[in-house]
Design a protein around this nucleic acid. Structure first.
Lengths: 195, 195
DNA sequence: GGCATGATGTCAGTGACCGACGTCAGTCGC
DNA sequence: GCGACTGACGTCGGTCACTGACATCATGCC
């Protein structure tokens, strides 16, 4: 017999999601979440630096998926090709079965500005990590930042669509990235001769 | 003789910046900022919805600059061309004289994760607004989002460089955008034939 | 002169978050 | 098999961001 049930953080996250979904984020107290699993508010904040973090902790795995995708890219790949590989790897992190869960989670975030801020911050952190990985492969700093941020943008837009449509995230990501390349080519043709 | 000095919000912002710069953001209380200009904490929160907002209020003008740049773009311009125009307009919002002020402000933000979150949120809001404006000009939704986010990315990177280098923001923005287009072309050549 | 107005002050409260300290079941060295 | 140690938790007290309700009072309009 163990003294404490394992997976405390996970149980807190599950309870939080349910409470947020029914009562609303702001109407739910950190102490209430803790009580729901038989713990104290203080313990809640030992597992999550923030009340918001209860909805975001665990994204290191997504970041790792991006990093794995980068590693999987061939050595001669251009920055955006590497990013494309990372996007593919990240897509496998969201199989279609996960859609319902992601939807309720997202609906909570969409209703609270503070949570949206955190979500965007995580995306930016992701972009920074990706940029670092690109630079480690020898990509120039500016190119690394641009490619990484573009990847984050594509991922963000694709993820939003994945929640609505029924297609796979991988397909959607590819389409969104292709559209970005199209836009850029179009602009390059118009902007370059002007110089 | 007026009962209250005008420009209350501005005075609060100035006092806040000084206190944050010397004492640090977290070590400065909203009540202290208010006291510094002879007001009450309650009044502070009547002018700013947030403690953080004291550093960000006023950015509607930057958004407006982007919007003006969009309006100034010719009707036949492609989405990213319109964005380029918006970037040019936004650049004039940051003349070189403003660099010192921007630098101290940014150093405060860079030292506090919460402020970084807010900054990124503002950038995203800007991108959303730009995307709406693009759509109002008839740009397809996906293209509008991508172009707007790319613009925000370019602006963010260019702004960071502008704080360090001594070149004009306009020049830097143009360079960063050009690099993005280069990256995209490079990737398009590699990715497209693969299909 | 009286009255509406708007910016402010006062007060009392809630909830997020933190530091310090105590508790206690399991683990490890001997 | 005992005592020191550790790690996850509880308790307590406090700070500070933020809010609603209500009072105040110069200004300007009628």
């Amino acid at each position: 017999m163990v003294r404490w049930e394992p997976g405390t953080a996970e149980r807190l996250q599950k309870a939080a999601l349910e409470l947020f979904a029914t009562r609303g984020y702001e109407q739910t107290t950190a102490a209430e979440i803790a009580q729901a699993v038989g713990l104290t508010e203080r313990t809640f904040f030992r597992h999550f630096s923030d009340k918001r973090e209860v909805l975001f902790q665990g994204q290191e795995l997504l970041v790792q998926a991006f990093l794995d995708g980068i590693d999987a890219a061939p050595a001669e790949a251009s920055p955006l090709e590497i990013v494309a590989s990372a996007l593919g790897s990240a897509a496998s992190f969201f199989p279609d079965e996960r859609r319902p869960h992601s939807r309720t989670r997202q609906s909570i975030i969409d209703r609270n500005p503070g949570l949206q801020e955190r979500e965007q911050h995580k995306l930016t952190t992701l972009a920074t990590t990706v940029a670092d990985a690109l630079r480690a492969r020898g990509v120039d700093e500016l190119a690394a930042k641009l490619a990484a941020e573009s990847g984050a943008t594509v991922f963000g837009i694709a993820f939003t669509r994945w929640l609505r449509e029924e297609r796979s995230l991988d397909d959607i990501s590819a389409d969104v990235l292709a559209e970005l390349l199209l836009l850029a080519e179009e602009a390059a043709q118009a902007l370059r001769p002007t110089r």
